[in-house]
Structure formats: structure tokens, C-alpha cells
Amino acid sequence: MKRAAPAFDRSPSALRPRRSIPLGIVMAVFLIYAFLPLVWLLINATKTQGDISTTFGLWFGSEFALWDNIVETLTYGDGIFLTWLANTMIYVIAGAGGATLLATLAGYGLAKYSFPGKRAVFAIVLGAIAVPGTALAVPTFLMFSQLGLTNTMWAIIIPSLISPFGLYLIWVYAVDAVPTELLEAARVDGAGEFRTFFTVALRLLAPGIVTVALFAIVATWNNYFLPLIMLNDPQLFPLTIGLQQWNLQATGVGSDPIFHLVITGSLLTIIPIVIAFLLLQRFWQSGLSAGSVKQ
């Protein structure tokens, strides 16, 4: 199709304005702000205890002690850091995995089947999103202690299983991403409900599921308040509580100065989660925007 006026050319390049240098500078400032503490952490994880306090924070110290620090972090206190890491993995796999599974099944069910009281369920889910986790944590603790569940792994896993936000996301996502006609076609072809779900719906829902899984993983990996109140046995701690424990040990009265372990431990704690985010970015970016991108 030809247009009379070339100025209205529909090619993308015509719509794309010039690069803006000032805008780039502003955004670079944002980026520096976002990276500053991470860079600080990375650099200081390579320093010895003495260098941390005596040398300039954003440059390397006199010795490169990263490997020594890592070894010491992993072996300090009979390798308790590795126990914390293993605990965190258990909480993430059981809690976030379970939360994703439940949110997917429930969200899909709510999106694709109609039943009486659906509007009420929707209202309850929305309300549940607004109830902050920390407000529930204290009552949950009191209740769990009646049931004898505190100071066990279940105390962390069970509350992690519920993700109203994840359910909501899958619900909204499934309404758009899984065409009802497709499900009906599958039913006509004689596929059972479960078969339909696993062969047709699951594939279409994948970006949404990855998004929910990723947010559940982050929430569980980073959870602090819940384990703080539920657990008092260091053998059950996740990394977040363990690190704070070390930090208290380093700053408290009669302290054992292990700042270098707190710093190196922090670095080791964020590496897996950052890698997960970067590897899965294609999925979560499309999952997050898919709900809103419809033309």
C-alpha cells in the first residue's frame, strides 16, 4: 500500500524518535543507584576483615581474599551456612512449588469453569491479596503453637503454600490465554478434563506459571518475618535468618567480629536468585505484560 505523504510512513523507524542523551544520563543515574550496593557487596566480599574497615569501600583492598572468605563462610560453625542453604532450598521447592501448583489449578479452574458463588470467591481472593502477610504471621504463629507445629519445617512450608496474588494472576491470565473454544474442541474430540488441562491448557499457561513460580520463589527465598517468629532452632533456619544471626553476633555485646562472613554470605545468598531471574526473564517479562497487552 502506498501512501501519499512519505512523512506518515508506517515503518517502525519513522515512529522511533532520536536517541536522547539527557534521558540516557538520567537513566544511568538510576542504574548506578540500583547497582551501587551490589557493587559494594561484591567488592567487599573480596576483602579481609581488616581491609573492610580501613580501605575505601568502592575499591579493592590490599589482598584478594574472596576464596578464603567463601571457604570460611561455608565452613564456619561446622558448615552451618550449608545447612541454611539446604533449608532454604527445601522451603523454596516445597513452599513455592506447592504454591505455584495450587495457584495454577485453582486459577485455571476459576477461570474456565462456572459454578455458583464465583463472584464471591473472586471478591475473597482480591481481599486476601490486600491482607498483608506480616499481619497474619503473628496469629498464625499463635495458632500453630497450639497445634505444636512451630519450630518445624511445616511452619514455614504451610503458610507459603497460599499465594492469592499468584492465583489472581493465573486466573486473569487463563481467561485470555486459553480460548474456551479450544477446550470445547478438545472435549468434543473426547479428551477428558485432566487430559485437556495437561495437553492444551498447561502449555498456553506456561509464561503465567513461570511468572507466578518466580515470584513465589523470590517470596520464599527472601522470607524473613515468618521464619523469624516460627523457628528458634538454628538447624532449621533459612539463609535470611542465619545471616541476621551472624550480623547480631558481629555487632552485639562481646561480639565476634565476622563482618566478612556476613558480607560474603550475603553475596552467596543473592547469587542463585539473581541467576534465576536473569535466566527466566523472557518468561516473566511476557507473563507480567501479557495480562495487559491486548490490542
Binding site: 523470590v218 539463609l239 545471616l243 543473592i270 534465576a276
Partner: peptide
């Protein structure tokens, strides 16, 4: 810019 969100709150405060 999104990366800090992935950093655990505890680690963020410690840093």
C-alpha cells in the same frame, strides 16, 4: 533497575 527486587530484604538492609 528491577534486579534489587530479587535481593532478599535482609541482605538489602545489611548491605
Amino acid at each position: 533497575l528491577f534486579l534489587p527486587y530479587a535481593v532478599p530484604g535482609v541482605v538489602a538492609v545489611l548491605m
